[in-house]
Amino acid sequence: MSDNYFIDLHPFSFSVNTALPQVINNLSTIYGSRFRKQSTEVADYELSVQKSSGIRSFIKPQARFFCDQQEPFKPLNFQKAYAFLEWGMNWTVAGNEVQHVIIHSAVLAKGNKAILFPAPPGSGKSTLTAYLAHNGWRLLSDEMALIIPNTKTVEPFVRPICLKNQSIDIAKKLFPDGKFSDIAKDTHKGDVIHLSPPESSWENQTNTAELVGVVFPNYRANQDLQVYQLDKTQAFMQLVENAFNYSVLRETAFSTLTKVIENVQTFEIFHHDLDQVAAFLEQEIIDYE
């Protein structure tokens, strides 16, 4: 029988209806005490992950995702059900929430100074995110940065870090104690694993931070750290390209992002050594002011 679970993920909450042990176990590994059986809590969105029915479900079982009675995606291989739910949660937020300008980007902070890392897949963003989160930085977001309109304040939306392909082995070596989900094999992003950020990030789940930098990372094998200052027009246009709800928020998003870009440092970096990156970020951006 399927049960209702509640996930409290500031600033949004979800109820998840599922009977799949795989989904329940992964949610419990990743979200810890923030994941529980739903009792009287009221969730913002009702999600559900189910096994699809029919003869095919015996030969090649599939998982279906629903958000408030809607089924936005075609079913996926059953084995990917948990990853599917994570993407479904992203979809739900991206499609409904417009109280923040939402950027496809990681956000990490030292104290209350935050840096935005918008980057396409393959840029090594998530490995960098995982590394920083385990080395004295606080994770605010891995994929969805929530900026409060007309400020440079970021609202945390702490979620697991999504690692792909080769970075899975690297991460398992780097963080032997990390809380990892099962691997979802052969997704459109390749093999995917979710890693729960350290407890300190969860504890600060409701504390906002102020943006001081925007850094576009690019992983290059055997490349010593190279840093380029990005001019503001280019940096702005790249942020626009990475914004989920920019086209909905229009003027609000435009003025918010121009304000952010005007008031932060903007860099593009090419790197191999994560230690070097961390040192650069601290010296040149965090300690700069």
Binding site: S52, S53, I55, Q62, F73, P75, L76, W91, H188
Partner: peptide, 17 residues
């Protein structure tokens, strides 16, 4: 056919998120 083979047996490729 859909109820026998699952709703998405006809779809050509998966439209993933």
């Amino acid at each position: 056919i859909k109820s026998l083979f699952g709703k998405h047996v006809f779809t050509k490729e998966l439209d993933q998120p």
